[in-house]
Amino acid sequence: MKQKLIIGFSVILLLTVVYLIGSDLFTNSSKHDENPTEYKIDKLRQIDSSLICYKEINHFNSGMSKAKGLAIDENNTIYIAGNKQVLLFNSSGIKTGGFKMDTLAHCLAVDNDQIYLGAGNRILQYNIAGEQISSWPAFNPKSFITSIALNGNHIYAADAINRRVFKYNKNGNLVWEIGKKDTAKGFEGFVIPSPYFEVAFGAYNDMWAVNPGKHLVQNFSVEGEIQSSWGLTSFSIEGFSGCCNPSHIAILPNGEFVTYEKGLERIKIYDPTGKFRCVVAGPESFMRKEDLILKIAPCVVDLAVDNEGTIYVLDANNMVKVFVKK
């Protein structure tokens, strides 16, 4: 009797095991546990929509697979560099020209139909027909040029690896370099944790360079002396968050700054004194809802403004989005 009881009990237990396995296998336990250690980036990315003062009026595909650099000349022609080519578009997004080259350029600047491209550690000069005019020797084999600006007869190149801005004349001769720590003049040097380092010229030929590790935009004289700087470290809308921000800037004809901030993915306007004015576009302009929660790679590759104050943004999908004031 006892034995029978034991057998019966054991067999029932065994069948329970079989049942447990079977039910666990076939019941679709779509348990969507909350993640206690979640980093809620989508909350940080929320932007008060009343702050948005620009609207998207147009967008077009660059048709390039690895678009890297965007520039606009005085005739409002758009130049896009990347994937071993440069393409030209008019302001409504119609392709008007372009040429191929044999290196991948990461940034470019245009003046008088002369195109200056930063390709790794070299500066290349092309004319609009796609002929290479000159190729300057690398200043340093390790250099990585992330931004080029033109002013008068000089070319300014920002080198992220050496943390220097180099000023060249049009013959390719180095005029000066800035970036060395100079505590006497109150300059701490550029802190550049990753290859985001921009240099740009304002409406009054004032030179600005980003010090991304310090969240500063700094003004230098043409002699390379630091003049002033502005910038605030903060996750709130007025400041710059994370590391290496603002990672791209452009200066509007009226002297206002357009900044792109990776991570939170926001493009904002600051007035010439560095006071936050408003938002051009938030992450929703570049991301789907899902991406707001999950995506962590930067969405914007470069930005530029034309002489009417229209803002052009080149995104990571090789699309150019065009924003104007509301």
Partner: peptide
């Protein structure tokens, strides 16, 4: 191995 820092570093830093 929760990956919280990975997300923070990836989104705002160098990854």
């Amino acid at each position: 191995g929760c990956g919280k820092c990975v997300k923070g570093c990836g989104a705002f830093g160098n990854g």
